[in-house]
């Protein structure tokens, strides 16, 4: 079982690394959107650092949403989705592997640009560790929930907008607790409660999402 998980993660990472140029896209998109806010709102230090948690996490939601499409797009086109369900290993394990691989490609790189974001948005030093933790715990939840939406809308035209309509409302709790944690850290308040709730959300998503994704894929394939 576990070996199948590792196998499909290695396969998807190998496929992704074959198109190395595209690996940077989610991060570049993220940085660009973050720079839009000071331009659009105001570069004032006090104002920006108060706005920063919301900016960071709204952008994370949008970046996750836009990069979600690629998780099943290729599998539907080349017909390897069907093979998932013929395997000796349960489809939920293989699907979990695919989501982990997708997170490693699109979610984890966000950690690299956390210091840059903190710089751009005047996030004080002591809040950066919290930013790291919330990104580390929050982005996998976004990938897991987003994958349910992609599994439902995979074969449809207008998938991107439809995906947003389906998935963004479900992202709201992650947005609330993650940005809440960061703003608490900025103002020096305790943020362990928020992080704990995010952790609980992650465990819930890890258990339930693969089942929902597997059922959704069966629906889209029928």
């Amino acid at each position: 079982m576990f070996s199948a998980l590792i196998t499909i993660i290695r396969r998807d990472l190998l496929v992704a690394f074959r198109r190395r140029a595209e690996l940077m896209n989610p991060i570049l998109f993220y940085v660009i959107v973050v720079t839009l806010f000071p331009l659009g709102v105001s570069p004032d230090k006090e104002f920006l650092s108060q706005l920063a948690p919301g900016v960071v996490w709204v952008t994370a939601l949008l970046a996750a949403l836009i990069s979600m499409e690629s998780i099943f797009r290729q599998d539907f086109d080349d017909g390897s989705v069907e093979q998932l369900f013929l395997s000796q290993h349960p489809p939920t394990v293989l699907i979990l592997g695919k989501v982990i691989a997708h997170w490693l490609i699109t979610g984890l790189p966000m950690l690299i640009i956390v210091p840059l974001m903190a710089l751009l948005l005047y996030i004080p030093q002591q809040a950066i560790p919290t930013l790291f933790i919330t990104v580390l715990i929050g982005t996998p939840i976004l990938s897991l929930i987003g994958a349910i939406g992609v599994a439902l809308t995979a074969g449809l035209r207008g998938g991107g907008v439809l995906l947003g309509l389906l998935v963004l409302p479900l992202y709201i709790p992650v947005l609330i607790f993650a940005s809440g944690a960061v703003s608490a850290a900025i103002t020096g308040l305790p943020y362990s409660g928020h992080v704990a709730l995010l952790g609980a959300g992650l465990i819930l998503a890890l258990i339930l999402a693969p089942l929902a994704i597997s059922a959704s894929l069966k629906i889209s394939m029928s």
Binding site: I148, P169, L170, I172, P173, I176, L208, A212, S216, S220
Partner: peptide, 24 residues
């Protein structure tokens, strides 16, 4: 197929409603 997809989303939604309610 549309009804099955809508059903799936409704079930995922109903699981999330208490969570959204609590977080809001």
């Amino acid at each position: 197929v549309a009804a099955k997809a809508a059903s799936m989303l409704a079930i995922v939604g109903v699981v999330n409603i208490p969570i959204i309610h609590f977080s809001v």
